[in-house]
């Protein structure tokens, strides 16, 4: 081993190939790289980490690192990359922890929103914009209820869950709430750009196949006022 090509391929084996056992201080490098990544994943996904045993946690993440090594230079993106791999693939512990990818994505979203860029919101006068520091997650598992004492997949109700996370403009704290499909539709439409109140409610009514009568519009306006009070929707 002397060429750069051979040496880089060797480092890849040292870092990511579980079938290769590095010798001596090369093992130290494997441990440093792996433990560095585990530390990041653990700090951003504490719920997932708390549920899995040490062995399971390492096994599933070794598979991720082997099959889909991280690409982002931004270290806090690592859990997102791991969650997407686990969501999109049958992994070694899919049967035991079928919700793992969704849970890790949900845990990552909090960090994603916490660090979301501060974008100046603009739009036509009196239109509504969505707080740009937000995330809208859609899940088939109740990830917001999964915990160390509640994670048996046979006892978790499968359904369509919408979770909305946002950063409060003043406190900069990240909040979350479970929302229904109608509110999720409101957010999806606002994600496309600012809309005035009536246009927004009409577009949502069309999508949800609701008659946009007086009662609907009044309830919709009250909903939007509540969202504005929470710092989720901004009036331009």
């Amino acid at each position: 081993m002397s060429s750069l090509k051979e040496i880089e391929a060797f480092w890849e084996k040292v870092c990511f190939d579980p079938n290769y056992q590095p010798e001596g201080r090369y093992q130290t490098y494997r441990e440093l790289v792996f433990s560095g990544m585990l530390d990041v994943l653990q700090s951003i996904c504490p719920v997932a980490r708390g549920i899995l045993s040490d062995g399971d946690w390492q096994q599933v993440l070794q598979e991720f690192l082997r099959e889909a090594p991280p690409r982002s230079v931004v270290i806090r993106q690592l859990p997102f990359e791991a969650s997407q791999y686990l969501k999109d693939h049958d992994h070694v512990l899919s049967e035991t922890y079928p919700w793992l990818g969704e849970l890790m994505e949900y845990e990552y979203l909090e960090v994603g929103v916490r660090f979301a860029p501060e974008v100046q919101v603009t739009g036509p006068k009196d239109s509504l914009s969505l707080n740009p520091a937000h995330a809208l997650g859609a899940y088939t598992w109740p990830v917001h209820f999964i915990s160390e004492t509640r994670h048996d997949p046979d006892k978790l109700p499968r359904a369509e869950y919408f979770l909305f996370l946002w950063r409060e403009p003043e406190s900069l704290e990240v909040k979350f709430m479970e929302i229904n499909p109608l509110v999720a539709a409101v957010f999806r439409h606002l994600q496309n750009g600012p809309l005035n109140e009536i246009s927004l409610l009409q577009q949502v009514a069309d999508e949800m196949e609701i008659e946009p009568g007086t009662e609907y519009l009044e309830e919709g306006k009250a909903l939007l006022k509540g969202l504005a009070d929470k710092g989720i929707v901004f009036k331009n």
Binding site: S3, W11, E12, C15, L32, V73
Partner: peptide, 25 residues
């Protein structure tokens, strides 16, 4: 150093070989 190998990014620093080829690279 290397902070990625074969496109895989990490946040540790791996040493290069002390060779003429590495310098030229």
């Amino acid at each position: 150093c290397y902070s990625s190998v074969m496109g895989a990014q990490f946040h540790d620093l791996l040493p290069l070989p002390f060779t003429e080829e590495a310098i030229n690279h």
